Amino acid sequence: MTPEELERATDHELLLAHVDGDPFAFGALFHRHRDRLWAVALRTMGNREDAADGLQDGLVAAYRRAAGFRGDAAVTTWLHRVVANACLDRLRAAKVRRAEPLPDDLEEYRGRGSVASASTEDPADVSVADERRSQVLAALRQLPDEQRAALVLVDMEGYPVAEAAAMLDCAVGTVKSRCSRGRARLAELLAPLLAAEHDADHPAYRNPDPPGPVESGDPPRGPPAPA
């Protein structure tokens, strides 16, 4: 395909072209969806290094298994399924439970892409925002892997439950149950944070100048396509 044809092609056409031997089709497909694939890997794995490994595992699997795509779901759903399962496989194998702070782009990637930093940010406000994100993500890390994956897809990425179930290759009821249990557990873990924020909302403590957006880095370009 020419660059123009790659740009106009549907996801399914790109996947078929890749299967037929087009050397650029899979890269174009990944580039089209890289932001959300990266967000899913990052939030599921918990840190950039492991997220990059999980994303690469998923892309290698998708690259090699493309010929087996049955077309019973959207290509993007299939890609997310492969990446999510690759990340879960890594978590199950390594029992990743790291304590280092996670990237501060949990909210920024919800809208896809990075947010430019405001030049008039108050460092104190940024510090509070960073601490809040760290506490939320630390709590998220304490959930069982399957609950975390369900919450990432449904609550953070905004996928319908049915689509998340297709990505995780489980029943809709299972995703609902995992999300319900995960939310209940997060509410317990984050109770002190929610109480503190409630106190901070009191007029006596309210900051009249809301903080500006926090700068976040771009997602990685992704691993080179396997040979």
Rank of each mutant, 00 (worst) to 15 (best):
P3L: 13
L15S: 03
L16C: 06
V19C: 13
D22K: 00
A25Y: 03
H33M: 01
D35A: 14
D35T: 11
A39W: 08
M45T: 00
M45D: 02
E49R: 05
D50C: 09
D50V: 08
D53S: 08
D53K: 12
L55T: 02
L55E: 06
Q56E: 15
Q56F: 09
A61N: 06
R64M: 06
A66S: 06
F69Q: 01
D72F: 05
A73P: 00
A74Q: 10
V75M: 02
A84G: 06
L88K: 00
D89A: 15
R90N: 07
R92Q: 11
K95L: 14
V96Y: 09
E100M: 06
P101R: 05
P103K: 00
P103W: 08
D105R: 07
E108Y: 05
E108G: 14
R110M: 11
G111D: 15
G113N: 02
S117M: 07
T120K: 04
D125P: 00
V126L: 12
S127E: 14
S127W: 11
V128R: 10
E131G: 09
A138E: 15
A139F: 10
Q142E: 15
P144L: 12
P144F: 08
L151D: 03
L151Q: 03
P160W: 06
V161F: 03
V161N: 00
A162L: 08
C170V: 11
V172R: 12
G173A: 10
S177D: 10
R178P: 02
A184H: 02
L186A: 09
E188L: 04
L190V: 01
L194N: 08
A195F: 07
H198E: 15
H202N: 08
H202E: 08
Y205Q: 08
R206K: 08
P211H: 13
E215L: 13
E215Y: 13
S216F: 11
S216D: 13
D218R: 15
P219G: 14
P219F: 15
P220S: 14
R221F: 09
P224K: 07
P224G: 12
